[in-house]
Design a protein around this nucleic acid. Structure first.
Lengths: 176, 176
DNA sequence: GTCTATAATTTGATAGAC
DNA sequence: GTCTATCAAATTATAGAC
């Protein structure tokens, strides 16, 4: 049996489509077909597409935060390793974009509540790295690390070459 | 007078919208209104949306190549400087995404001809950096530099903070 | 080359029965 | 909570007059 709530099943279907096509690239009808209900039932759980998009970004950020854990107890290297693995999972395990990377690229065309929740994801990750690095950190800036991972995902997927992600994710520290 | 050809006026309007909303986020009707014609006239110049999207990505790549110049005559530092300025212009001057960064994120949901032309942009830039760096280059990999710039654009726009682009674009070489 | 007109489909969203 | 039925608007695209 499917133990997920209908709300979660809808969010799962929406996330899969949004991470492939973006906010403007999926419809309530498609989600309804994916889940096996009618589109009016989707509207019962999420009155508007903006509501759904915002819930999508919020759940995505919450899950990322849970995966990354407490920055105070991981240390700088482990923090970067965990974040890198989060993006590698998106590429290899899910074969999908980072939801908020794609929403971030569409930022100006999103309903305000979706744009806001997308921003929260980036603030969460930057805050995580900043906290894990501590005030004495002299290495690559949190924004540079996160940017590299978002971009690496795009390039690797656009060129169909997983290794390009590893090359880009490796960053400045090239063993040699 | 407007010296641009109708084809270019359409591409200009389409680029502005695509760089804000993505491939799935604009319509022929909107472009027609922007340019001041009917949507059937847009179809005369670009029979399908895929034709338009591919032309968009091709023109974008060509212009980027013209801006970057011959890699054999610029040297590694100047090559990175020029590429960085290309992305800074997108953020500050245009207040738009990189067209191919957004198309790349939507890659799996694009018509084949658009996905292909988008890939050409990334191949062009990576080839440019690779050529400018030469075989003895031991610094940051071309894919890492390009990834950082694409991601920096997304993050800076999503958080409405131009300085985040500069921080991320700065990369590993932090003067201190 | 641009227009009017239109086709066929899809979109986000609502009303009301069950 | 899901359904049927429906809406008004928008979508990509085509046919044919001018």
């Amino acid at each position: 049996m499917d133990e997920r709530t209908m709300r979660d099943r809808i969010l799962d279907a929406a996330e899969a489509r949004a991470r492939t096509s973006g906010y403007h690239g999926f419809s309530f009808r498609e989600l309804a077909d994916d889940v096996g209900v009618k589109s009016s039932s989707i509207h019962y759980h999420f009155p508007t597409k903006g509501d759904l998009g915002a819930a999508l970004a919020k759940r995505y950020a919450t899950r990322a935060g849970d995966y990354l854990g407490d920055p105070a107890s991981v240390g700088p290297e482990e923090a970067v390793t965990r974040l890198t693995q989060l993006f590698r999972d998106a590429l290899v395990r899910d074969d999908k974009m980072c939801l908020c990377g794609l929403f971030g690229a569409e930022h100006e065309s999103l309903p305000p509540e979706v744009a806001s929740a997308t921003g929260d994801f980036f603030r969460l990750v930057l805050g995580y790295l900043t906290a894990a690095f501590g005030p004495r950190w002299a290495g690559e800036a949190p924004a540079a690390i996160l940017a590299r991972l978002e971009g690496a995902l795009i390039i690797a997927r656009a060129l169909g070459d997983v290794n390009l992600f590893e090359v880009a994710a490796q960053g400045p520290s090239r063993g040699g």
